[in-house]
Each structure stands twice: as C-alpha cells, then as structure tokens.
C-alpha cells in the first residue's frame, strides 16, 4: 500500500518550471532517496509534501499529492495537523534559541500536550531514537545553540520525532556534518524505518545506496529514473543516471 503518491506533479516558481510532471510513490516503512544535482528540484519536491511552499509568492502547482489516498492540497486539510503527520528535517540544523528540552517539546505542546510527565517521556524517547540521549541527558536545560553541528542535526531529528509523525522528510540532513555524525544519523534512519516512512534528499549517492530501499533520480525537475536501490545503482536504465552515479557529471 502506498503511503505517498505524487501524480503528475509540476511546480512553477516565478514562471520557471521547477518540477515537471513527476510521478512517484512511496510505500509504507520504506526509505526513498531522492538524488540529483543541485537545482534539480529535490528540495522543492520535499517541501511540497509538507506544504511549506504555501507561503511563497509567485508559485503555481499542478498535479496532486496524496498521503494515505487523501489529497493534501484539498481545502479541508488542516495544514498544521498535516505537518505534524509529515515531519520535516532541514538541511541546515536550526535549533530554536531555547533549551534542548524546550526544542523537543515545542511541537507537542503546540499540539496540546501539556502534562509534564508525558512531555518528559516524549523528550527521552525521541532523543533516544535520534541517538542523542546519552550525550545530552544531563544538560537538557542548556541552550540548544551550545550543541555541536552533528548534535544539532540529531536534535532536529528528535524534535521531528517528538511530533510522532507517520512520515519523515529529510532534506540533505548530513550535508554539513562530519562522517561520524553522518554514520550516526544513517544508523538512526535504518532503525526508524521500522516505524516510519522516510524520504531523504541527498547529494551523496553513496549514502543513498547505504540507506535507501528505493531511489529516485531527478534532473532539471524531471524524474529520470525510479526503482529499487540496488537496481538503480548497478544497472540503471537511463544513461543519464549512470553518468550521474559514476560521477561523469553533476
């Protein structure tokens, strides 16, 4: 059963076509990696699933996005509610200028969870899932800005997990991280797959090969290739995919 379905999805920004009629489906508890060179529309695609482009002016969307067979751009969708179901982690880790604890409970508290005990549980659980608990458990009240880059990104992942979402969108989560932090985040992802559906945008084809079940290759807003990770990386159908993966352009 598919969790997310993109149907003929096109997107224009200031008259320029950023996405060109993309069809894609993501199954439940699967990791889909979207790869492609810079400017190919990967991030835009991700942001559309979270309706983050709503606030951008001069844009036009064509086609539909379904989550659980429900069109997420229909008028009766509660957007904050949708964003709680579909968590997003950005390329640049941006902690809120508050304590680590406050960062995690920001979302849950807006959702109406006020019991301290429940919030405490959420904080510990999500930090553990993001492999950060042991490093910060003694300083939850310290500013989140005092964390290292890799820790910040794991905090952002934990913050998203605290929403108890169904889908997690990761936009190049490791682009500014060192290999050790990257390894930790990849480990977390593989663990999270059991419970969540994950879409990860990455510039790192090796990372895609390591974590993804399926891979989609975007080029200039067009979906060039989509298939099982192993197949895409060993015997790609399209020559452009082969060129990109082997590093002949990009």
């Amino acid at each position: 059963m598919n969790k997310i379905l993109l149907k003929d999805l096109s997107f224009y920004f200031e008259g320029k076509k950023v996405l060109n009629s993309v069809n894609l489906e993501v199954l439940k508890n699967e990791i889909l990696a979207i790869i492609g060179p810079a400017g190919s529309g990967k991030t835009t695609l991700l942001r559309l699933i979270n309706r983050l482009e709503d606030a951008t002016y001069n844009t036009k969307k064509e086609g539909d996005i379904f989550v659980d067979d429900k069109d997420i751009y229909s008028v009766d969708i509660n957007v904050p509610e949708l964003r709680r179901r579909i968590g997003m982690v950005f390329a640049q880790p941006v902690p809120l200028p508050r304590s680590i604890y406050e960062n995690i409970i920001y979302g849950p508290r807006l959702a109406g969870i006020i019991y301290k005990k429940k919030l405490d549980e959420l904080v510990e659980h999500s930090l553990r899932q993001a492999f950060l608990w042991d490093e910060v458990k003694d300083r939850l009240n310290q500013s989140a800005l005092s964390l290292s880059g890799g820790q910040k990104q794991r905090l952002c992942i934990a913050r998203t997990l605290a929403l108890q979402p169904e889908v997690i969108l990761l936009d190049e989560p490791c682009s500014s991280l060192d290999p050790i932090s990257t390894a930790k985040i990849e480990e977390a992802m593989l663990r999270l797959k059991e419970k969540y559906t994950i879409i990860i945008v990455t510039n790192n084809t090796k990372q895609a090969a390591r974590v993804a079940d399926k891979v989609a290759f975007l080029l200039m807003g067009e979906l060039i290739e989509y298939g099982q990770s192993r197949q895409v990386f060993t015997i790609p159908v399209d020559k452009r995919t082969d060129d990109y993966i082997t590093g002949r352009f990009g």
């Binding site: 983050l52 904050p80 964003r83 968590g87 997003m88 950005f90 941006v94 809120l96 807006l110």
Partner: peptide, 18 residues
C-alpha cells in the same frame, strides 16, 4: 528574524499566529 526559524515552527505544526 531568520526565515528558517519560522519554517522550523511551521514544520513542527505551528500555525501562523503561534
């Protein structure tokens, strides 16, 4: 106020007013 901070709030289910 940096735009990413606002987007973080939106992505965590915050409404515009919140």
């Amino acid at each position: 106020v940096p735009k990413p901070l606002r987007e973080v709030s939106y992505s965590l289910g915050g409404t515009k007013w919140q």
